[in-house]
């Protein structure tokens, strides 16, 4: 496929995203401490952990929506936490999908999707719209291109938000609890999309409470606890043989309620 979202492979692809000793505070509260992370090309990293453990903050730091206090972050080997770097240019290479969709309510779905390609990447309107419609078609939203977000179901809105993030052909996709606001019967249609993106080789980092899904899809799982990556490993290892007591206790809640 010509538009493989991960971009062409180079001889030695280093990690797409690398975080080293990242520290982040909000006023008095320490939210991320000594966080290290490496995300290899075409892999999926799942961030799990209790609410408030710092998953969203980690993703927002990776996208420079938050400024880190200490440590460093690299995107494709380039240090993006260097103050001289053009932050807008960095964000252009990273797609983000939020829990609350955050579609622009005053724009149709197609306008939402073509905004960044047209305004940021200078793609001519006709071309941007054609590609937008193709992507919508692929995600089963072809008929909704001209609808406004408030006329879409939650699942459709979230899929539209994914298309919007994909429309700029990002190098890396960050997904922050993208099914948390959805009714249970709509979760599957969104997860299906993510599964499909993985098949196409998209590099993704996702914060999620869908443990079964994380187990199925993730190459790497990181368990965050109070701002620290307490444990990391393959999905197999984390879900079947967690080393840390806290990880076990966290996962037991899901096994007990039959969600894992």
């Amino acid at each position: 496929m010509s538009d493989r979202p991960g971009g062409p492979d180079t001889a030695d692809p280093g990690p797409v995203l690398r975080m080293r000793s990242v520290r982040k505070t909000f006023g008095e509260s320490l939210v991320l401490r000594e966080v290290d992370l490496e995300v290899a090309p075409h892999t999926v990293t799942a961030l799990i952990g209790a609410s408030g453990s710092g998953k969203s903050t980690l993703l927002r730091c990776a996208n420079l929506l938050e400024e880190i206090d200490d440590g460093a972050i690299w995107l494709d080997g380039e240090e993006i936490t260097d103050p001289r770097v053009d932050q807008d240019a960095v964000r252009r290479r990273i797609g983000v999908v939020f829990q609350a969709y955050n579609l622009f309510p005053h724009m149709s779905v197609l306008e939402n999707i073509t905004l960044a390609p047209r305004r940021v990447h200078g793609v001519p309107r006709a071309e941007a719209e054609q590609r937008g419609r193709e992507l919508l078609e692929r995600l089963g939203l072809g008929a909704k291109a001209d609808a406004y977000p408030d006329r879409l179901s939650g699942g459709q809105q979230q899929r539209a938000a994914i298309v919007r993030a994909l429309a700029v052909r990002p190098r890396l996709l960050l997904l922050d609890e993208i099914t948390a606001a959805l009714d249970p019967e709509l979760v599957a249609e969104v997860l299906e999309v993510v599964r499909d993106l993985k098949e196409q080789g998209m590099t993704m980092v996702l914060a999620t409470h869908e443990m079964a899904f994380a187990r199925d899809i993730a190459d790497q799982v990181c368990f965050l606890d109070a701002g620290v990556v307490l444990e990391r490993g393959s999905a197999e290892q984390i879900f079947h043989a967690p080393r840390e007591e806290r990880t076990r206790r966290f996962l037991r809640r899901f096994t007990d309620s039959g969600r894992l």
Binding site: N63, L65, D88, A89, R91, R92, R93, I94, G95, V96, F98, A100, N102, L103, F104, P105, H106, L115, A116, R119, V120, H121, R164, A165, V168
Partner: peptide
């Protein structure tokens, strides 16, 4: 603010976010 964040995460500059996302609304 999440609207601005969404715009910035797409790579829009502060000005573009204001012009295309915040001001129209």
């Amino acid at each position: 603010p999440s609207q601005r964040a969404a715009a910035r995460s797409l790579g829009l500059t502060n000005r573009q976010a204001l012009r295309h996302v915040v001001l129209p609304q």
